[in-house]
Simulated scan of single mutants.
Amino acid sequence: MPRCPAPIAHDALRRFSHRLCIGAILAIATPAHAQQAQNPSPISDTTRPHPRVAESRADGERTTLSLGELFVPAAAAARKRVTMPLVMHLHGTPWLIERHIAKAVPHAALVTVNLGAGSGRYAAPFADAAKFSALLDEAADATARITGRRPTWSSVTLTSWSAGYGAVRAILSTPDTAARVNTVILLDSLHASYVIGGDPSAARSKDPAVNVSDLDAFTRLAADAAAGRKRFWITHSEVYPGTYASTTDTANALLASLGLSRQPVLKHGPLGMQQLSEARREGFQLLGFAGNSAADHVDHLYALGDWLRAWKVVQ
């Protein structure tokens, strides 16, 4: 159930902020309803400025992998550590993610993967369980060519924005690959289909139930995090896709699986974001934010660096 088709540059965002993500396509699990389009959002936000940093390349070394691109910040390359953390980010402008890593966790290596429109494109390569492990090894080999020493990954953190959750779900769906992941951060980045008959875009008086089977890999991770065995951090907006479950819907389903309730709060977040709710238990944290425009959705991607610094989850 994809979100935005491609990483959004800030000039394009200003042009298209009146609707959520043009061309996003929903791949419904029921064959009869495949290829349903997301309902376009007419909402725009002129209340907050949604600041965006100018594009710039962080200092470091880069190399192209079989899937994605490796970035080793200058600080990490100079240290030549035997062990170092790895962050793998799914869906998001590479220069921006590299900037986040170079400033927030400069001792970590980064792999960014961008595969275009739809969560299905992110899920497909990782349907082969061997692909994730092979990519981790390939990244270690490439890092060795940069630093002169092949690192052991001290931790593996997966971060995703928007449609990138398709890859995260595929990786977590296999026990062996899930075991290699220490931390997951979803940035307004978790959807599911509805349990529905007929046309999901047809008028209705209320939303159907979330198809919780779409969330199985995430509910397992949430349980592990709530027990202190993993770390799972989720942020979500109030964007309403209409033809499939929103990030608010799926967040509520995860909370129900843990027997947790949201606590209402009113806090400032990065970029002037407005936090409205939260839920926490051990290594599990969920933060709900106001906003149902495209700009509100993109804020979560731009805020990643602030959250990495605040949460200190990459070790």
Rank of each mutant, 00 (worst) to 15 (best):
G272R: 06
D249S: 11
H268M: 10
A227N: 12
K267W: 11
E238F: 01
Y240Q: 13
D214G: 10
S205Q: 09
N211H: 13
I234W: 03
T247P: 06
V210I: 13
A253Y: 07
G269K: 10
P241D: 02
T243H: 00
A251D: 03
A226N: 09
R262N: 08
P241A: 02
T248S: 11
G228H: 13
A226L: 11
G228M: 11
A202M: 06
D224C: 04
P208Y: 03
G259T: 08
D224P: 05
Q275G: 05
T243N: 12
A222E: 03
G269F: 07
L221D: 03
Y240E: 12
D224K: 15
A223Y: 05
Q274C: 00
T243Y: 00
G269M: 08
E238D: 10
S261V: 05
Q274T: 14
R262E: 14
R220V: 15
M273D: 09
T248G: 08
D216R: 15
P241W: 03
A245I: 06
K206H: 15
P200G: 03
L254T: 10
Y244Q: 12
D199F: 03
Q263G: 00
H268G: 12
G269H: 09
Y244I: 03
G242H: 10
Q274E: 11
R220H: 14
S205I: 03
W233T: 07
R204D: 05
K267Y: 10
D207Q: 12
A222T: 09
D214S: 08
P241H: 04
T235Q: 14
G197D: 15
Y244D: 04
A245V: 04
N252Y: 03
Y240W: 12
P208G: 12
F232R: 05
A225T: 12
R231Y: 04
V239E: 10
T235N: 14
P200R: 06
I234Y: 07
T247H: 04
D216N: 13
S201I: 05
D224I: 05
Q275A: 07
K267N: 12
L276Q: 15
D214Y: 06
L271M: 08
A253Q: 12
S246F: 02
L215G: 13
V210P: 13
A253K: 12
L271D: 06
S201V: 07
Q275F: 01
V212E: 15
D207L: 14
V212Q: 13
N252W: 01
V212A: 15
L271V: 01
R204H: 12
L258W: 10
D216C: 00
A253T: 14
Y240N: 13
Q275Y: 02
R204Y: 02
L266A: 13
L271G: 02
A253D: 11
T235C: 08
L215K: 10
E238L: 13
P200S: 02
S205H: 04
D207F: 11
K230P: 09
N252K: 11
T248L: 14
L266V: 06
L258E: 05
S201C: 01
A222W: 04
A203Y: 03
G269A: 11
L276P: 00
S201W: 00
A256F: 00
S246M: 09
I234P: 03
G197L: 08
A226M: 10
D214A: 08
Q274Y: 07
A227D: 14
H268A: 15
V239M: 14
A245G: 14
T247V: 15
P241L: 02
L221I: 04
F218P: 06
D214R: 09
L258I: 05
R204P: 09
P208S: 10
V265N: 04
